[in-house]
Computed example of a mutant assay.
Amino acid sequence: MTTRATVSALLDGYGRTYAEEAGITLRDKPAPLYRLLVVTVLCSVRIRADTATAAARELFRAGLRTPRAMAGSGWQDRVDALGRAHYVRYDESTATALGDGARLVLDRWRGDLRRAGAAADGDPEALRGLLREVPRIGPVGADIFCREAQAVWPWLRPSFDARVCRTARDLGLPGTPRGLAGLVPPEDCARLAAALVRVGRSERAAAQVRAA
């Protein structure tokens, strides 16, 4: 299988970003970036990604699309929204983390995560450090946010973390961020990263890509 065929199979079969799956049209605007942060928080525990994105859709459907709306919501309302998506086991602690995180975004960045980007001054590692101040987000969560946000923040490219690079090597692709970025147009880096995450979590998906 050629590199081009592998990349096509990845993008065609698994290249939907997690932001898209959560119903977010990602733009360099405060509200969509905050919604991406919500998805990041939801994905930062041991839970299926499709359950996390379904939970995000329920929260957004309930009107919790901005840090002000999230901070002003009731804890039980957040728990109920998570429960409707079967985001159980972590629902109560996550409801708390979402409220605390929304207040941090309001207090620290006046509700606009672009201020966090500006504070990082073009340094992806600095941004990861700022993201880890948000409740529930650790190194894995920071990687999730950067993989997705590179679609609208070019200075984050290429964002392919070690786990993504390992999956790429297993598929016969370059195993470095720069090498992977060279396989697709810049605007598709986030899609390729998302595809590699999905395939890395599923032996069946990996087999389908290899056989495509």
Rank of each mutant, 00 (worst) to 15 (best):
A168G: 07
V164H: 06
R103V: 08
D112F: 10
A181F: 03
D112K: 03
E92Q: 14
R132S: 13
A194F: 04
D170N: 13
L106S: 00
A102V: 13
W155D: 12
A102Y: 12
L192R: 02
V140E: 14
T96V: 15
E148W: 09
Q150A: 01
P135L: 03
A168K: 08
D143T: 12
E92L: 12
V197S: 03
E92N: 13
Q150W: 01
R132V: 02
G138K: 09
S93R: 15
D123N: 13
I144E: 05
V134N: 11
A162P: 08
D161C: 13
R166H: 13
R103E: 15
R166G: 12
D123M: 06
E133F: 03
L130F: 04
G111S: 05
L130W: 08
A193T: 09
P158A: 04
L156C: 09
A126G: 02
G179Y: 04
R147E: 02
D100W: 10
A194Y: 07
R136C: 07
L180F: 09
L104C: 08
R157Y: 08
P158Q: 11
L104K: 03
C189D: 12
D143E: 14
R163N: 13
D91V: 03
A162Q: 12
A168M: 04
E133I: 11
P154Q: 03
G141D: 05
E187Y: 11
D112V: 03
L180R: 04
R178W: 07
P158G: 02
L173W: 01
E125F: 09
R108W: 13
D161V: 09
L106V: 11
A194G: 12
G129N: 08
D121E: 14
A195D: 09
R198G: 01
I144C: 04
G117K: 08
A97G: 09
V184S: 12
A118D: 14
D112Y: 03
L106Y: 06
P135F: 05
P186H: 10
G179N: 05
E148A: 01
A149V: 02
D121W: 05
A119H: 02
G129W: 04
G111C: 06
A168D: 03
R132Y: 09
V105M: 08
L183P: 08
G138P: 01
E187W: 11
V184I: 09
D91E: 15
R110N: 14
P135I: 00
D123K: 01
W155H: 10
A151P: 00
D161E: 15
E148H: 04
F145Y: 15
A102T: 04
R157P: 01
R132A: 14
V164S: 10
L131D: 11
L113K: 07
L183F: 08
D121M: 06
G172P: 11
G122F: 11
D91A: 14
R132T: 14
A118M: 04
